[in-house]
């Protein structure tokens, strides 16, 4: 039983991906023993009408993956009226979390809007996912060069919102050492393994991050799902720790009570 915290629906803007229809994606997840998947939308990167994006995401999850997909709405706090998007995610669609792409939406985590958004999420008991990058910067479209998210302000932001759960998605290619330890000093900050590289990646990152703060994420369908599944084999975790990383850590933090 695996819970995947990093899945996307709809279309990557720059090419078609295998399994980028919801039915194919659901079918592949089920074949791969994924029992629960937190899904955002690629449309959340560039579309301005995020209300419609989140409505489609909700509808797709409900109609094609009701027992599997959990929608995570996209929020862009630079858009006029973004607060209503948060309210809609929470009250209309009963979402449990929201997903942010600060680099695609051109704001810093140190901005006043982010502070307000974090406060609003904390007040409503929503978790926040922040995607650090969406692809290798060396392969980006030359007209769409997007820098990684800067997480320097995150520890301070989280300190102000006691109990707020935050997960960094696609962060493990570049977050290492002191920067990573500074972030994960807060036990409410979690990372996931989609972009974790190096031989024996999980067992090595556990030397820096407590396993209670490590989650299974695949970044499927942009990445082959097998990449993260294989990582469970390449590291010797033991059944108990593997169960925590693949299921229990996410359930404890994000599941609806």
């Amino acid at each position: 039983m695996i819970c995947d915290v990093n899945v996307y629906l709809s279309r990557w803007p720059f090419r078609r991906l295998p399994c980028d229809t919801t039915s194919e994606l659901v079918s592949k997840l089920k074949r791969s023993q994924i029992s629960r998947a937190y899904a955002g939308s690629f449309d959340g990167l560039l579309y301005k009408d995020l209300r419609a994006v989140n409505q489609r995401l909700y509808d797709d999850c409900k109609s094609q993956g009701a027992d599997l997909l959990i929608p995570v709405g996209s929020i862009n706090p630079t858009l006029p009226g973004w607060e209503d998007d948060v309210i809609a995610c929470h009250e209309q669609w009963k979402m449990t979390g929201i997903r942010l792409h600060p680099n695609y939406h051109e704001y810093e985590l140190s901005s006043p809007e982010t502070k307000k958004l974090f406060a609003m999420a904390a007040e409503r008991g929503l978790f926040i996912q922040i995607a650090m990058r969406m692809e290798d910067d060396r392969t980006q479209h030359k007209l769409m060069r997007i820098p990684d998210v800067n997480f320097e302000a995150l520890p301070g932001l989280m300190k102000e919102q006691d109990g707020l759960q935050v997960t960094i998605l696609n962060g493990m290619k570049s977050l290492r050492g002191a920067n990573l330890i500074r972030l994960t000093e807060n036990p409410n900050l979690t990372i996931e393994i989609a972009m974790l590289e190096g031989v024996g990646g999980i067992e090595k990152i556990m030397e820096q991050v407590p396993y209670e703060q490590i989650l299974f994420g695949s970044y499927f369908p942009f990445f082959y799902l097998e990449s993260s599944l294989n990582k469970l084999k390449e590291s010797q975790l033991g059944m108990e720790i593997e169960k925590q990383i693949t299921w229990e850590n996410a359930q404890k933090r994000f599941a609806k009570t």
Binding site: E197, G198, V199, G200, G201, E226, L229, N230, K231, E234
Partner: peptide, 18 residues
């Protein structure tokens, strides 16, 4: 391209391909 990369991610390119 180990050890900077993992066997996991690179084998997946073949194992997961249609």
């Amino acid at each position: 391209d180990i050890g900077g990369r993992s066997f996991s991610s690179q084998l997946a390119k073949v194992q997961g391909a249609d």
